[in-house]
């Protein structure tokens, strides 16, 4: 495996007596699509929350591009180049789609403590926001309020906002959740496209989707990593079959 862009060492998170994430050590290789799967309650979302700084770990370390980011807060990880999208659409419903992405794009200015020039005057911000919208197929919905677009489009907007921050690594929490087949296919195409120059870490329950795009798979159960490897390797793993895939198609 090449040098990891993001890696965790013995990462744990306790909520009282509950061990949500238990001694997780994973290396995420640059430029790969790395999927994390596992039954509900396996600790996947908690892991993502630890990686982006939404939660702070009880134990262990996280490094991003050889820099220790264990103690960073969400805005700091974002500025460091880690983008994050949420399982439940986490958008600004009162704002237009462009304004939603604008916020992502504007956060790459050295500071937004700018009080005088109108925001519209910042051409590079607009360009970045529009590029992100176009990439996610929302170019034509630019001026529509985010509350008024369809659920699937809101999922796309969720990703577009993250892309507008121009991250190097994307943490995607169930990007396909609640999407129709066609919309899901479009998002999968988008993810493949993004994988050309980004590292993708995603949680997903749709197994067909996972096996169609993931290059590396990590299976989690009860907060622990069962196995990490290429999809075929993981499919053949006995422990995984017993713990998880053996449960049949339900998958979640």
């Amino acid at each position: 495996m090449t040098e990891a862009i993001l890696s965790t060492r013995n990462l744990s998170k306790l909520f009282g007596a509950l061990v949500a994430v238990d001694g997780v050590t994973i290396d995420f290789a640059p430029g790969k699509i790395h999927a994390i799967i596992g039954p509900n309650g396996a600790g996947k979302t908690t892991l993502i929350n630890l990686l982006c700084g939404d939660l702070s770990p009880s134990q262990g370390t996280i490094a991003f591009k050889d820099r220790d980011i264990t103690k960073l807060t969400p805005f700091q990880t974002s500025r460091a180049g880690i983008g994050r999208s949420y399982q439940k659409s986490n958008i600004f419903p009162e704002f237009s789609c462009l304004e939603n992405c604008w916020l992502g794009a504007q956060s790459r200015l050295p500071t937004s403590m700018k009080f005088f020039r109108p925001a519209e005057g910042y051409g590079e911000v607009r360009a970045r926001a529009e590029r992100a919208l176009d990439l996610c197929g929302l170019g034509r919905r630019m001026n529509v309020r985010a509350a008024q677009i369809s659920h699937g489009e809101q999922r796309q907007l969720e990703i577009a906002m993250m892309l507008a921050t121009e991250p190097e690594l994307l943490l995607l929490d169930e990007p396909l959740a609640g999407m129709g087949t066609e919309e899901a296919a479009a998002i999968l195409e988008l993810l493949k496209e993004l994988a050309r120059d980004h590292t993708l870490v995603l949680i997903e329950h749709d197994m067909d989707a996972v096996f169609s795009i993931a290059e590396v798979l990590t299976v989690m159960d009860n907060g622990r990593v069962l196995v990490t490897g290429a999809p075929e390797e993981v499919r053949r793993n006995r422990a995984v079959q017993e713990a998880y895939l053996g449960m049949g198609d339900e998958g979640a």
């Binding site: 504007q106 700018k114 009080f115 921050t165």
Partner: peptide, 29 residues
């Protein structure tokens, strides 16, 4: 009005609507 139209205004309006997401987008809210 000027402050609200400027980049700063965009950020504080976003904080009112969804502070958590504003932070996740890279702002020290």
């Amino acid at each position: 009005s000027m402050v609200l139209r400027a980049p700063f205004g965009r950020v504080i309006k976003a904080i009112r609507v969804n502070e958590h997401r504003t932070r996740a987008l890279g702002y020290d809210t």
